[in-house]
């Protein structure tokens, strides 16, 4: 799941030479997007007579619907020197693909959140490593629950059971150890040395 944060205005303004069309994506609606900041920025540029038009809508990553929705803004986009897109990276690329001759400015940075389905980020994360380790770890993912994604056990960085990188995050391997003890599966730690395969995306890219 992706969320966005608006880039610093100072970083954006130099890109807005000439007139600008604002295309704002609500994201996946219930998934965070910087609504208030974008609205304020829009008002500012409107006051400065920089905008040829704007559209706030959802799912701009869907090119078919975006085409339908932008039909009535054709003139405004034509008049603009720059299309400013407030969305995740997918949305920006969709727009850039639709208007290859226009300068498209990516106005947000995109972050990933745990979970795929729905709109609520999950407690658990899955990095889609393609070689599920959960059988060895009592169902706690070492790739996402450990800051270093270690797969052979705890590092020396845990302090009071917390991670060295984030003292608010419990050490993943501490949790794994506890879970395995609980379910009587400490034998899982005796498995052979685990090595990651970083080429699992081959399967998907075929």
């Amino acid at each position: 799941m992706l969320i966005t944060e608006m880039k610093q205005k100072d970083a954006l303004l130099p890109h807005f030479s000439g007139k600008v069309f604002f295309l704002v994506c609500h994201g996946c609606k219930e998934v965070h997007f910087p609504e208030a900041e974008v609205e304020a920025f829009k008002a500012e540029l409107m006051a400065a007579d920089k905008l040829t038009g704007y559209l706030t809508t959802d799912y701009i990553c869907n090119p078919e619907n975006l085409t339908l929705r932008l039909a009535k803004h054709a003139q405004a986009i034509d008049d603009a020197d720059v299309i400013a897109v407030f969305s995740c990276g997918v949305g920006v690329q969709t727009v850039a693909g639709m208007y290859p001759a226009k300068k498209v400015v990516a106005c947000c940075d995109t972050y990933a959140l745990p979970g795929f389905q729905g709109v609520t980020p999950l407690e658990y994360d899955c990095k889609q490593c393609g070689q599920c380790y959960l059988n060895l770890t009592g169902g706690i993912c070492p790739i996402t629950a450990c800051s270093k994604s270690l797969i052979n056990g705890q590092c020396g960085g845990a302090k009071n059971g917390m991670c060295e990188v984030d003292p608010n995050m419990e050490c993943g391997w501490e949790r794994i150890q506890r879970r395995l003890a609980q379910i009587g599966r400490l034998d899982a730690l005796k498995c052979s040395v685990q090595l990651r395969n970083y080429a699992t995306d081959d399967l998907v890219n075929q």
Binding site: N152, Q154, G156, A158, K159, G161, E174, K190, V193
Partner: peptide
């Protein structure tokens, strides 16, 4: 370490 069990497990590995 407070996580001495996890440390021992890692040592074994």
């Amino acid at each position: 370490s407070e996580s001495v069990d996890a440390q021992l497990a890692k040592m074994e590995r």
